[in-house]
Simulated scan of single mutants.
Amino acid sequence: MAGQVFRVMLRMQIKSGMEGDFERVWQEVGDSVTSHPANLGQWLSRSAEEDGIYYIVSDWADEPRFREFETSDRHLEHRKKLHPYRSGGSMTTMHVVAALSGAVGSRS
């Protein structure tokens, strides 16, 4: 469906003892993603259940513009800066089909 938010979720395993450095570098280089005109935002979360596991979620205006970013030199440079901290990972993509705001999010 045209105009549907395209969401990317990365699951990253970070090398033991490098978690703090990874978080710092992720924040330092994040604008290479968020400054892209099709990016709607991104979030870094640390697993509450598994040591060294992080999730990065980014929302995009549409899939074609994400795919354009994914193969760009800008993205490859971003990945190079984070790669030394990773010991594994995976990527899942999806189309957001509905969104509901919670009670706190809907207060004015």
Results as ranks from 00 to 15, higher is better:
residue 1 M to G: 15
residue 1 M to D: 13
residue 2 A to M: 12
residue 2 A to F: 08
residue 2 A to G: 13
residue 2 A to I: 08
residue 3 G to P: 04
residue 3 G to Q: 13
residue 3 G to T: 06
residue 3 G to E: 09
residue 5 V to D: 03
residue 6 F to W: 14
residue 6 F to N: 07
residue 7 R to F: 04
residue 7 R to E: 08
residue 7 R to W: 05
residue 8 V to Q: 10
residue 9 M to R: 10
residue 9 M to E: 06
residue 10 L to A: 11
residue 11 R to N: 04
residue 12 M to C: 07
residue 12 M to D: 01
residue 13 Q to W: 11
residue 14 I to H: 00
residue 15 K to M: 07
residue 15 K to L: 09
residue 16 S to F: 10
residue 16 S to A: 15
residue 16 S to V: 12
residue 16 S to P: 05
residue 16 S to W: 05
residue 18 M to E: 12
residue 18 M to W: 08
residue 20 G to K: 11
residue 20 G to E: 14
residue 20 G to N: 14
residue 20 G to H: 07
residue 21 D to R: 11
residue 23 E to S: 02
residue 23 E to C: 06
residue 24 R to H: 07
residue 27 Q to E: 09
residue 28 E to T: 06
residue 28 E to P: 01
residue 28 E to D: 08
residue 29 V to I: 07
residue 29 V to Y: 03
residue 29 V to R: 03
residue 30 G to P: 02
residue 30 G to M: 02
residue 31 D to W: 06
residue 32 S to T: 12
residue 33 V to W: 00
residue 33 V to M: 01
residue 33 V to A: 02
residue 34 T to A: 00
residue 34 T to G: 00
residue 35 S to K: 06
residue 36 H to T: 06
residue 36 H to V: 03
residue 37 P to W: 00
residue 37 P to I: 07
residue 37 P to Y: 01
residue 38 A to P: 00
residue 39 N to C: 09
residue 39 N to S: 12
residue 40 L to T: 03
residue 40 L to R: 14
residue 41 G to S: 03
residue 41 G to P: 01
residue 42 Q to N: 13
residue 44 L to D: 04
residue 44 L to E: 04
residue 46 R to Y: 02
residue 47 S to M: 04
residue 47 S to N: 01
residue 48 A to P: 01
residue 49 E to D: 08
residue 50 E to M: 04
residue 52 G to W: 05
residue 53 I to R: 04
residue 53 I to G: 01
residue 53 I to F: 04
residue 55 Y to F: 05
residue 55 Y to K: 03
residue 56 I to K: 00
residue 57 V to I: 10
residue 58 S to Q: 06
residue 59 D to G: 10
residue 60 W to H: 03
residue 61 A to W: 09
residue 62 D to S: 05
residue 63 E to G: 05
residue 63 E to Q: 12
residue 63 E to N: 03
residue 63 E to Y: 09
residue 63 E to K: 13
residue 63 E to T: 09
residue 64 P to Q: 03
residue 66 F to P: 00
residue 66 F to N: 08
residue 66 F to M: 10
residue 69 F to C: 10
residue 69 F to N: 07
residue 70 E to D: 15
residue 70 E to R: 11
residue 71 T to A: 14
residue 72 S to M: 12
residue 72 S to Q: 05
residue 72 S to C: 12
residue 72 S to L: 14
residue 74 R to A: 15
residue 75 H to S: 13
residue 79 R to M: 12
residue 80 K to E: 15
residue 81 K to P: 00
residue 82 L to N: 09
residue 82 L to A: 04
residue 83 H to W: 09
residue 83 H to M: 15
residue 84 P to Y: 07
residue 84 P to I: 09
residue 86 R to H: 12
residue 87 S to I: 10
residue 88 G to M: 07
residue 88 G to V: 13
residue 88 G to D: 03
residue 88 G to C: 10
residue 91 M to C: 15
residue 92 T to D: 10
residue 94 M to I: 00
residue 95 H to N: 14
residue 96 V to S: 03
residue 97 V to P: 01
residue 98 A to R: 12
residue 99 A to T: 11
residue 99 A to S: 14
residue 99 A to M: 12
residue 100 L to I: 13
residue 100 L to G: 11
residue 100 L to M: 13
residue 100 L to Q: 13
residue 101 S to V: 01
residue 103 A to S: 14
residue 103 A to W: 06
residue 104 V to E: 15
residue 104 V to L: 11
residue 104 V to Q: 11
residue 105 G to C: 02
residue 108 S to F: 13
